[in-house]
Each structure stands twice: as structure tokens, then as C-alpha cells.
């Protein structure tokens, strides 16, 4: 009968998979995140036609910073050093909830895009593409969240 093996201490932030500790992971994630956000901010300022350039840079850089920091962290963290992270997430029930929610959401997207395309074609309706994608993306995420919670409630 197997016994739990002693392992290195775990934390909510974890350690770097390239061998460094928590501090190295945090510093590298911050540096990469700042570089990504600065790049996006500079791109937005360069492409923009209205408003102050530095203001456009600052807003986009600040808004994207959290995601820009989390992205390298997610890629560089050693999962085995994370508190609460299981060894085989693909075998856990949460993976099934995710799959069920993703499957349902994909069907909703197919139906919505189909009906929307027909509606826009028949009515010749013109809308701002950026706003349409923001609204549609938000609805897709909300749809996925609701479906995940429903799958969780059904199995829990």
C-alpha cells in the first residue's frame, strides 16, 4: 500500500520550472508582463489617431498588465509546487465539467453565429465590429461559466 511521499513545500505562487524559486518566478513574470504590456501600449498609441499618445499607452499598458503577468507565470510555474494543484487534472471530475461546458458553448456559438449571420444578411444591419465582438465574447464567456456551474451542480 502506497504512502504519501514527502515533497518540497508548496505555495499559492509556486516555484519556477526552470529551476529558480518563487522569487525568480515572480521577477521573471513581472519583467515579461511589463514588456508585453508596454509593447501593447506602444502599439495602441502608435496606431491610434485620437487622444494623447501617452494616455493611450498608459491605459492599455495598465489594463493589460494583470493578464500579461499571469501569462508567463502560467507557462513557467512548476505545477507540482502549487498548493492544491492535483497531479492528474485530466482525470479529475473538473475536466469533465470543463469538457461539457466547452461542448455546450461551442454548440451555442454555432447556433448564434448562424442565426446572427442570417439576421444581419436579411436586415442589412450595420454595427460596429469591435463592439459586436466584445459583446459576443462576453456572452460566450458567460455562457461557458453558467454551463460549467450547471455541470458542477449535476455531478457534485
Amino acid at each position: 500500500m502506497s504512502q504519501p511521499t514527502a515533497s518540497a513545500p508548496k505555495s499559492n505562487i509556486g516555484r519556477a520550472r526552470f529551476g529558480g524559486g518563487t522569487a525568480a518566478l515572480v521577477i521573471v513574470s513581472l519583467v515579461i508582463g511589463l514588456a508585453i504590456s508596454s509593447g501593447l501600449g506602444a502599439l495602441y498609441a502608435w496606431l491610434g489617431e485620437t487622444g494623447e499618445g501617452w494616455m493611450r499607452f498608459a491605459i492599455v499598458a495598465i489594463v493589460t498588465l494583470p493578464v500579461s503577468i499571469m501569462l508567463p507565470w502560467a507557462l513557467l510555474v512548476d505545477r507540482s509546487s502549487l498548493e492544491g494543484a492535483v497531479d492528474r487534472p485530466e482525470d479529475s471530475v473538473e475536466a469533465r465539467w470543463y469538457s461539457k461546458a466547452a461542448e455546450g458553448t461551442m454548440h451555442d456559438v454555432l447556433i448564434t453565429v448562424g442565426i446572427g449571420a442570417a439576421l444581419f444578411s436579411f436586415t442589412q444591419l450595420q454595427v460596429d465590429t469591435g463592439m459586436l465582438l466584445i459583446v459576443f465574447g462576453t456572452l460566450v464567456m458567460a455562457d461557458f461559466g453558467v454551463r460549467y456551474q450547471l455541470a458542477k451542480r449535476a455531478d457534485a
Binding site: 492535483v86 497531479d87 492528474r88 471530475v93 473538473e94
Partner: peptide, 8 residues
């Protein structure tokens, strides 16, 4: 022991 979540 199984490497899965408690909820599983």
C-alpha cells in the same frame, strides 16, 4: 493517492 481532486 490517485492524483485527482477531492471532488473527484
Amino acid at each position: 493517492e490517485l492524483g485527482v481532486s477531492r471532488q473527484t
